[in-house]
Design a protein around this nucleic acid. Structure first.
Lengths: 234, 234
DNA sequence: ACCATAGGGAGTGTTGAACAATGCGACAAG
DNA sequence: CTTGTCGCATTGTTCAACACTCCCTATGGT
């Protein structure tokens, strides 16, 4: 019947992860244990274990004795995610040794998946392919730790992408740059690839951040951010 | 009574973490639930939660339906840890903006702690101070993700240090280099500091790896190791 | 001696219910 | 508008029992 590899908690976590990534569960939303135990068909203890797995990926946050909530990414979080991505992704490329052409197979494949998605106008798939591209890029380094960190960073990023919506706008412009990065790697020019990736990530960050600011600007109607001290609020 | 902040599971995890770091629990050793539930005075579910926390830090590994074990670091793991440390620590230093002298306070303090420990010939404390030095170094970058990653890496390293024993030999030579790094930072020469840290970490890795090889050489009678071609190290 | 294979058993995985502990929010008082 | 208190909903933790899986060993065949 259902896939039976891994523990029940892992499978439950996978279901919840999908709901979060696809937007069925929105950032800030609370996940109540009693409301999920029934539909998922698992016990409370197992559900709590699934919560921990997702919290470990940064998708959920625990508030002691109050509940678990879908993580909300603030601007500072976004900046940190991109800071870390530049550190790990660019650093990995820079330290890359000469690589056989077939080592690039999985990278090439993810770019190809992006092409297909674009032709099909399947923007969600394009986003997924784009994420996988970066994952495979880091995978070239062969470092389990780096893989793990990037996996986590990309998972968090999906929270942000969902806030600003419109997957096409965010991912389509970068498909061409993925091609360019791939070409540079195939030519063995890792330094230039790293530099290009640096610009790439900075552009992506800028774009996302300005969208974030525009979004939060018209969203808060009253909550003035830093009310000047001493002045009566009305 | 006992400190009551945080959950019971977190406190239990802290106890176990200390036992692992201090060597009361050796790498490869199995932690059986029934044998720990009593002495820790907690229930099985809570203990399992503590296990998850430590597994997340890389100190324990789960084997499905078989048990949890204290993580054993192989050579490949060590290489990966240092690879990642160079990526994050050196990268952080390189991207550091001009910093106020008092931002270096905590770094200075950790170096000072190392001096004190050396005078007292408390080699365990010297090791701790050394670890904290690197943690504070990365802390200068102000990146929560980087902090978290380095915390994890250093926790794993303690496993390796315990295997080869003799804390003095591993930490004392680096105290002077900590001073040098601090001086470079105080002078605002972040690039040179990053370069020095690069050499620093490479030396540390080499030293630890050769000790590892010497150790495993007379320990294994037959099990030939397939030379781990994991991380491209140079 | 070597390899494959079928139990046995130890220990984890999961459940469900019960009780304890705590933070939140509403309401009341200054 | 702030401060303080109280009730309650929700989580934190415990406990006992059962189901399930994998490791190990012994058995049999070659």
């Amino acid at each position: 019947m259902t896939a039976r590899r891994g523990t029940v908690a892992e499978r439950a976590a996978e279901i919840l992860r999908r709901r979060i990534v696809e937007g069925s569960l929105l950032p800030g939303e609370q996940l109540r244990e009693e409301h999920l135990v029934g539909p998922l068909g698992i016990s409370r203890n197992t559900l709590r274990e699934a919560f921990r797995l997702l919290a470990h990926d940064g998708l959920l946050v625990h508030r002691l004795n109050y509940g678990v909530f879908v993580r909300e990414l603030g601007e500072a979080d976004l900046v940190d995610v991109y800071h870390m991505r530049r550190l790990v992704e660019c650093g990995t490329l820079r330290l890359l040794p000469a690589l056989d052409p077939d080592e690039l197979a999985s990278v090439r494949e993810s770019v190809y998946d992006g092409d297909v998605a674009q032709r099909r106008e399947d923007w969600r798939a394009l986003g997924t392919a784009n994420m996988r591209f970066h994952q495979e890029l880091v995978g070239l380094g062969g470092s389990p730790h780096a893989d793990e960190v990037v996996r986590r960073l990309l998972a968090e990023l999906r929270l942000a992408f969902h806030v600003v919506g419109d997957a096409r706008k965010w991912h389509e412009p970068y498909l061409a740059r993925n091609h360019e990065l791939l070409s540079l790697l195939e030519a063995g020019q890792v330094e230039q690839a790293a530099d290009e990736l640096q610009r790439y990530l900075r552009d992506s960050e800028d774009q996302l951040l300005s969208a974030y600011r525009a979004d939060s600007a018209h969203e808060r109607g009253h909550a003035i951010v830093a009310a000047p001290q001493g002045i009566p609020s009305r």
